[in-house]
Amino acid sequence: MSAAAAPLPRRKDLLDIESLAPEEVVQLLDTARPFKELFTRSVKKVPALRGKSVLMLFYEPSTRTKTSFEIAAKRLSADVTNFAVSTSSVVKGESVLDTVETLQAMKVDYIVVRHSSPGVPNLIARHTRASVVNAGDGHHAHPTQALLDAYTLREVLPDLAGRRVLIVGDILHSRVARSTSRCMHKLGMEIGYFGPGTLVPDTRPDFARGFTSFADALAWKPDVVYLLRLQLERMHASFIPSLREYHTVFGVTPARFRQIRDAGIWVMHPGPVNRGVELVDEVMTYERSLINQQVENGIATRMSVLYSLQPVTEARADDEGAGP
């Protein structure tokens, strides 16, 4: 696999998938494997990041991603601190750099950040020595979700090159669609998008082909159908007329599920699922549904990410300067 490749330099931050070279994606995925093996041991923890501190800076609530990162950090023996961000007490956005200044004084080594505004992790990364991991910024990127999706898929389809993934739903507002498609594209997969015209923009990357019906999309013979979560408020902004119509045209209905099952297509969803909107109940228990594995693999992938990044430590910064 990547055994012969030259060792890759460690990067400071993980802000998006786009800036990763394909070899880096593969390296991060390969590194996740030994971490997943740890989960079968009696002690699931390794001392790799002992003495390091990981700060969870979540401006947007997200139980799943946050818990996943917390477990990942703790299994690497890092100290985890939650920075309580009260979005109500400060004017939105204004506090970011002030907060970063405070964090800089706390000398944290890693900052895991989620924010509703795109580019906030980039902003923080520019102003801190700590390694910044983007845990989702607005519609921009969600790189660890993309890595865990790819990891999950590689467990069942070891060579992803030439495989096809059909991403269905709200492409426009989805950081998952952006990051996961980029990641899968870097691993050689073919990408297809299907969704309402209001939610599948023409400004998408060239590599993603579009479809005008679910039937056409399935006729393309995808290996994977990746269903995106539909934010229910899209209905109020005239993106879709009704949830009923969405499900009928863009959802996995019982009839479409039979087609998917007959073709042996794998099904993914970043969660949480709106049952009866993106998919019907039966999909959840389908033997080729990867929805639950995605959650478990999230921890191993995030361990791999934290382990692979390199914060600018106080010691190293001093070494480079004229320290005593």
Partner: peptide, 22 residues
């Protein structure tokens, strides 16, 4: 055993160590 995750010198590594399966 691959002891990479138990090393005490991660800070000094400029490249991502390749971890073999233990």
């Amino acid at each position: 055993l691959d002891i990479s995750l138990y090393r005490d010198d991660l800070d000094n590594l400029g490249t991502i160590p390749t971890i073999r399966s233990s």
